[in-house]
Design a protein around this nucleic acid. Structure first.
Length: 487
RNA sequence: GGCGCAUUCGUCUAGUGGUGAGGACUUCAGAUUUUCAAUCUGGCAAGACGGGUUCGACUCCCGUAUGCGCCGCCA
């Protein structure tokens, strides 16, 4: 384990993100990580990464890798860990023995089928489905007998019936009646031996890691009383709790794959920037209380407060993410942006040319991946487009040809080294004005065919910049190809 | 079904016992422009419902509704 367990100051803020590696880093997990990170950094605290991989069936190293890679990519770096629950078996065993010896937990020999039938029945008569406590009063002899027989069992925690109250930093006082909760399973048997279950391992790890604040999704709110009960049974202090509102899909249910992409990897691949994602995630359920909307990680740290966290769930609005992403793309230097776009651009093209191309499309990009389609015409020998695309408004073929001829005539006179935007504009605009004069000032009769001839696209950047990048030779070639379409 | 949590423009949200209920995204219109984008200007758009308390409630209280979450040998 690459632990760097540091000296812990009294009253030190210590928080954690505890993902289970059963899938790629989820946007919800990432946001929870972000909030924990911001909270920790704001108070010079420690942010811990703990991998909750007790469910060996569903946990995979590739997911663990993905989670760590993408947290780093987002810049949400942890100070301690990763701890892995799968490597902490003895610790759980120690506390399990304690619970067992103090008669606060017991072996349960009920079969899954039996339990399921019970649950169904309870539901059908309108009761809360919960364990009846059947094995709770089994005599020690009977337990021993079953155990030696090798009868399959799990361990349940004796849930005391009481009112559990706690103060949630976001929601205020929350109260649960644990009489409504059945004795919960805390350890199950696997092929290899015992395996701790979530509510049990969380409590122990949070204690062992001296977690001061548990900041997690609202979906854990009803797990909290269970965990508090185990804490009390073990004599642990209670951390402070803060339950974050959920990220919702457009139908207001918890965001899931059926709504949108949910893994950070997917957003990364699509060309979203970490800055945009962080800024966006932070504003899902939080705001600075001012009208400022643009925040980098550092300024988020400065402004962050749990007091400004919303109570209600927030719908994931990808339009706003896109807008933010476009904003951050526009903030990039050309060098940086070109570098970022490189995977989406053809190989073997001169870097300076690529920079010019990227610069042309910087303000049109919402996602990096869009650069591919937007600029593919630059790299083609021959453009495929219908000849009708060359037509501006009601132009006849003859008029189109006329414009194209004029263009070729003028451009072929310009020296290759003078083939740059300013010069082209200077020379071509007066001509465009001539065309415009008879047509209500519309320069499109001259410039539209030019642009289409060069790009083959209905929309694009301006023709002068494009011509500059293409150079004289390719520009004239494209004009020729366009003209050939007409006849 | 039980328990819990929530409810301001379509969306993210601000704010206050007396406001023209503010901002951002989206959208619409205009400016700019050969197209698209960007940019600028302007517009549309909101306190679930019902009761109270109060001179006055979006704001405080109660109830209802609706939504969501959780009730697992998943986390």
């Amino acid at each position: 384990m690459l632990n760097n367990f540091k000296f812990i100051r009294p009253g030190e803020v210590r928080v954690r993100i505890a993902p289970s590696p059963t899938g790629f880093l989820h946007i919800g997990t990432a946001r929870t990580a972000l909030f924990n990170y911001l909270f920790a950094k704001k108070q010079q605290g420690i942010f811990i990464l703990r991998i909750e991989d007790t469910d060996i069936e569903r946990s995979f190293p590739k997911f663990e890798r993905d989670i760590m890679e993408n947290l780093k990519w987002l810049g949400i770096e942890w100070d301690e860990g990763p701890y892995r629950q799968s490597e902490r078996g003895e610790i759980y065993t120690k506390y399990l023995k304690k619970l067992l010896s103090e008669n606060k937990a017991y072996h349960c020999f009920c079969s899954k089928e039996e339990l399921e039938a019970q649950r169904q029945y309870q539901m059908s008569i309108g009761q809360a489905p919960r364990y009846t406590g059947k094995c709770r009063e089994l005599s020690p002899e009977k337990v021993q007998e079953y155990l030696t027989q090798g009868k399959s069992s799990i361990i349940r925690f004796k849930v005391p019936a009481k009112k559990v109250k706690f103060n949630d930093l976001i929601r205020g006082e929350v109260e649960f009646d644990t009489g409504l909760i059945g004795d919960m399973a805390i350890v199950k048997k696997t092929g290899q031996g015992f395996s701790p279950l979530y509510n049990f391992s969380v409590v122990i790890d949070d204690f062992e890691m001296k977690i001061s604040h548990v900041i997690r999704g609202e979906d854990h709110l009803s797990n909290t009383p269970k965990q508090i009960l185990i804490q009390e049974a073990l004599g642990f202090p209670q951390p402070k709790y803060a339950h974050l509102p959920l990220i919702l899909g457009p139908d207001r249910s918890k965001l899931s794959k059926r709504h949108a992409a949910v893994s950070i990897t997917e957003y990364r691949k699509a060309g979203y920037l970490p800055e945009a994602l962080n800024n966006f995630m932070a504003f899902l359920g939080w705001n600075p209380g001012t009208e400022r909307e643009i925040f980098g990680l550092n300024s988020l740290v400065k402004e962050f407060s749990l007091k400004q966290v919303q109570k209600a769930g927030a719908i994931f609005n990808i339009k706003k993410l896109d807008w933010l992403n476009g904003f951050y793309i526009r903030q990039k230097s050309i060098e940086k942006l070109t570098e970022l776009c490189l995977p989406c651009l053809p190989k073997g093209v001169d870097l300076n040319e690529l920079k010019k191309i990227v610069a042309l499309y910087q303000e049109r990009l919402k996602k990096l991946s869009e650069i591919t389609n937007l600029t593919k015409f630059f790299f083609k020998e021959r453009l495929e487009y219908p000849k009708t695309l060359l037509r501006w408004k009601e132009m006849s073929d003859k008029e189109i040809k006329n414009s194209l001829d004029k263009l070729r005539k003028i451009l072929s006179k310009i020296k290759a080294e003078d083939f740059h935007k300013e010069n082209l504009e200077k020379i071509l605009f007066p001509e465009a004005e001539k065309f415009a004069k008879e047509r209500a000032g519309d320069r499109g009769y001259f410039l539209w065919p030019l642009r289409v001839a060069l790009t083959g696209e209905k929309t694009s950047a301006g023709p002068f910049e494009i011509a500059e990048i293409l150079g004289k030779e390719r520009t004239l070639e494209r004009l020729k190809q366009a003209k050939n379409k007409i006849k």
